[in-house]
Simulated scan of single mutants.
Amino acid sequence: MADDSTAGARDTVLGLWAALSKRDWDAVKTFLSADCIYVDMPVGATAAARGPDDIVKRLKVGLEPLAGYQNHDGLLVANGSDVMYEHSETWRWDSGETAVLQFVSVHRAIDGKVTLWKDYWDMGSLVNQAPPTWMDDLAAADTSWIFDATGRI
């Protein structure tokens, strides 16, 4: 049986992902601490986001333009405040392309808030499945959210 901190961390992470799957940006923010750091590990720590508002800005870069987005539950392993979540996401564009991406997300959740969130996934897989314009669209996106988390994660 999980201790209270493990159960709370697990519930926080699952709540975050349920809100994200709905792209309910206001709800996503409620699961993030004021100083939470989010990093797409294939991109690196120099392009992290920090805090609920900037993390949501960062998430919107990839997810908001999609015609459809869904998170698919998978294995979740929790130990105290540390939670690893193996899951997949389906991305669907208006142009008809669909990508299924495999993820491992590592979280630290304390007192009902995620304080650290690192996503591990295959950038090449996404690029190969995305529309030809996706990289250009990404390059033109708002990057005001960028936070250099080098040495902090």
Rank of each mutant, 00 (worst) to 15 (best):
A2D: 12
D3P: 01
G15D: 04
A18T: 09
A18K: 10
A19G: 05
A19E: 06
A19H: 01
L20S: 08
L20R: 07
S21C: 06
S21D: 07
K22T: 10
D24N: 13
D24G: 08
W25Q: 12
V28N: 01
K29E: 15
L32N: 10
L32G: 08
L32C: 10
S33H: 10
A34R: 11
D35T: 15
D35V: 05
I37Q: 09
V39R: 12
D40Y: 04
P42E: 00
T46H: 10
T46M: 09
A48I: 08
A48P: 09
G51F: 09
G51C: 12
P52V: 05
D53Y: 04
I55H: 02
V56L: 05
R58T: 05
L59P: 01
L59H: 01
V61N: 08
V61P: 05
G62A: 08
E64I: 00
P65V: 13
A67P: 03
Y69L: 10
Q70V: 07
N71Q: 07
D73N: 13
L75G: 03
L76H: 07
A78F: 02
N79D: 15
G80F: 00
S81N: 14
S81V: 08
D82R: 13
D82V: 11
V83K: 02
M84R: 04
M84H: 02
E86V: 01
S88D: 09
W91E: 10
W91G: 04
R92I: 14
F103L: 14
V104A: 07
A109S: 10
L116M: 14
L116P: 01
W117K: 04
W121M: 07
D122N: 15
D122F: 02
M123W: 11
G124R: 05
N128R: 12
Q129P: 08
P132N: 12
W134R: 06
L138F: 14
A139Y: 07
S144H: 03
I146G: 03
F147Q: 13
F147C: 13
D148V: 07
I153R: 05
